[in-house]
């Protein structure tokens, strides 16, 4: 058995003897985009959190400026009002760009009894979860998702690294997907893990 195994390994290493020459990641994009309304969801989340950060830095600045913290060097105290401006500059554009970028990246597909999902914006993630290994399928809705008629499908296996979360699906799509996954998972249940 081990002979065969080594042979296999050798053959395989010969096939990929020149690694990384294949260009970009040789995976096609998953078939389905998420709902357009997901952009609104991400926009809301992003703007909310950047507002929290900007507000926080504003308050901190006012505090520092008001009490003249003595242990800070003079140049920092003199220019302290740059802090909220910098935070705004750093977070707000990101919060506005992120949703559109995400909408271009986030896609999902169910075919061949495998869930294939792509997500991320600056960093990317491709997840492959075979239906036969699914343990639970959750359909969740936050309050803002409910307002927009969106839902999140969480697909869990025995491993966090083999699990996947698809955000920003239309509620109907999410319900159908969750239903379909649960039904197929029941049929295909494989106890090897």
């Amino acid at each position: 058995m081990s002979d065969h195994a080594e042979e296999h390994a050798e053959r395989a290493s010969a096939a990929t003897a020149v690694p990384g020459t294949g260009g970009r990641v040789p995976l096609r994009a998953p078939a389905n985009p998420v709902s357009r309304k997901a952009v609104a969801l991400w926009l809301f989340e992003g703007v909310f959190w950047s507002a929290v950060l900007i507000g926080g830095s504003f308050l901190l600045t006012r505090w520092i400026d008001g009490d003249r913290w003595s242990w800070l060097p003079g140049w920092a105290l003199g220019n302290i009002w740059w802090l909220p401006a910098l935070v705004t500059l750093a977070t707000l554009p990101a919060a506005i760009v992120e949703p559109f970028w995400r909408y271009a990246v986030h896609r999902w597909e169910l075919s061949g009894d495998v869930v294939y999902a792509r997500s991320g914006w600056i960093s990317r993630e491709w997840a492959f979860v075979p239906v036969s290994r699914i343990q639970t399928v959750d359909k969740a809705q936050g309050w803002f998702e409910r307002v927009l008629g969106l839902a999140t499908v969480e697909i869990r296996t025995a491993s966090h690294a083999g699990s996947s979360t698809i955000k920003g699906l239309d509620y109907g799509v999410a319900a159908t997907l969750a239903e379909e996954l649960a039904r197929r998972a029941e049929e295909l249940r494989d106890d090897a893990t």
Partner: peptide
Amino acid sequence: RAVVGWKLTQTPFQRQARVLTVTAGVGA
């Protein structure tokens, strides 16, 4: 047979270097 899924991740730096991280999800 212990593999329950795959996750491929790529940071911008990794994208520039044309590499990625492949994680085999294992329920153990």
